[in-house]
Design a protein around this nucleic acid. Structure first.
Length: 344
DNA sequence: CTTGATTCAAGGGAGGGCTG
DNA sequence: CAGCCCTCCCTTGAATCAAG
């Protein structure tokens, strides 16, 4: 699910569900962060690869001191003293969920946050972690009932890597047969799922999974509690910490003025230096004027703007009328092309 | 030498097509 | 029919190639 609009819709649904829960029960949905190093990629001799990175900030483990039982396979992949090891060794305290999206990246806060708006009289102590997801090729985030989540993570098996020793380290979780859809393949092999991390609530869990193990996750911790402000466009956290791990942005939906400025700057550069790269390829560059909108949305946008994807960038930039029509179309981009808020 | 453009590898499941 | 091979799915970033 590397698509901007799919993430925006997921985020909108989470916010709606949280608001509904608050209106019905008077509390915000709370969750804790689980990580599963046993499912993470480890790269090859020829190519280094790291699924996980962490920004510990000023967090200290004594904030969440309750010891946790560390799974042996997780411990094998994330050794004592490795960055982020504190996320394994102690129990997380639960806290309200906040969600933010920028381009193809999604961020979910979990654990011990207290919104000053909803909890004006509660002491603001404790820690919180934000899980930032970069979905890469085929990663996705799903919502599953908590009782199913508990069954699935209960048992891990060797993954499908042809190297048996490596498969032992790159593990998968076993999906109980009763949850396999009718019509799925009918052989005797195991049904597996790679859950890299999860935000776990009382009745549901958001699971971050990727059969190819190519997506990447980044955890940001803090000693002070996070706020909704931290997860909003323009905040210090938003600008300097939340999204710095992965290339991309400004977001065409949430940071439109900045995105248009980048687009205009890109045009000037093309006019000076010229490039025949097809506009579709330009939009797919994470650092380019598309800011990481993803392949499907880029094609949808060009279709909506009536511009052929293979149009050379200099043809688009040198024609005032063509460029202006494209720019005006970019200004109309909302939560997703062809998707109305009412459908969410 | 610099810059830009292109190629490649990383990952695992699914399904089509072929062979024994 | 089992088993195997091949292709598709699609992004990132390093490596390589090409042009100025």
């Amino acid at each position: 699910m590397p698509e901007s609009q799919a993430l925006q819709i997921f985020a909108a649904r989470v916010r709606k569900a949280c608001l509904k829960a608050f209106l019905n029960c008077g509390i915000l949905a709370e969750g804790v962060l689980h990580i599963f190093p046993r499912t993470w990629a480890e790269g090859t001799a020829a190519k280094a690869y790291s699924t996980f990175t962490v920004d510990q900030g000023d967090y200290t483990p004594d904030i969440e001191p309750t010891p946790a039982v560390v799974n042996e396979y997780d411990a094998g992949k994330m050794k004592q003293g490795a960055p982020g090891r504190y996320l394994l060794e102690t129990e997380r305290k639960s806290g309200p969920i906040h969600v933010a999206v920028r381009g193809k990246c999604l961020a979910i806060s979990a654990g011990h946050a207290r919104s000053p708006f909803f909890y004006p009289f509660v002491a603001h102590h404790g820690a919180q972690h934000i899980l930032v997801c970069h979905f890469g090729l085929e990663g996705e985030i799903l919502t599953v009932p908590r009782y199913i989540y508990d069954q699935v993570i209960a048992r891990s098996v060797p993954g499908n890597n042809p190297n048996a020793a490596k498969a032992e380290r790159l593990r998968s979780f076993l999906i109980p047969r009763k949850y396999v859809d009718p019509g799925a393949r009918e052989d005797n092999s195991l049904y597996k799922i790679n859950i890299l991390a999860a935000v776990v609530m009382e009745e549901d869990a958001f699971i971050v999974c990727d059969f190819a193990r190519i997506m990447q996750i980044h955890v940001i911790s803090n000693s002070r509690f996070w706020t909704e402000e931290d997860m909003s466009p323009g905040s210090e956290t938003w600008k300097n910490r939340l999204w710095t791990r992965y290339a991309g942005g400004p977001d065409w939906i949430l940071e439109k003025d900045d995105a248009l400025a980048v687009l205009d700057g890109w045009r000037q550069k093309v006019l000076r230096k010229g490039t025949e790269t097809p506009i579709i390829d330009v939009l797919l560059q994470a650092d380019g004027p598309g800011g990481g909108i993803g392949q499907h949305l880029a094609n949808d946008l060009l279709f909506g703007a009536a511009i052929h994807p293979d149009t050379p960038a200099d043809v688009l930039c040198e024609d005032d009328e063509l460029y202006d029509s494209f720019r005006e179309y970019v200004e109309t981009v909302r939560v997703g092309v062809g998707v109305k808020y009412t459908e969410i």
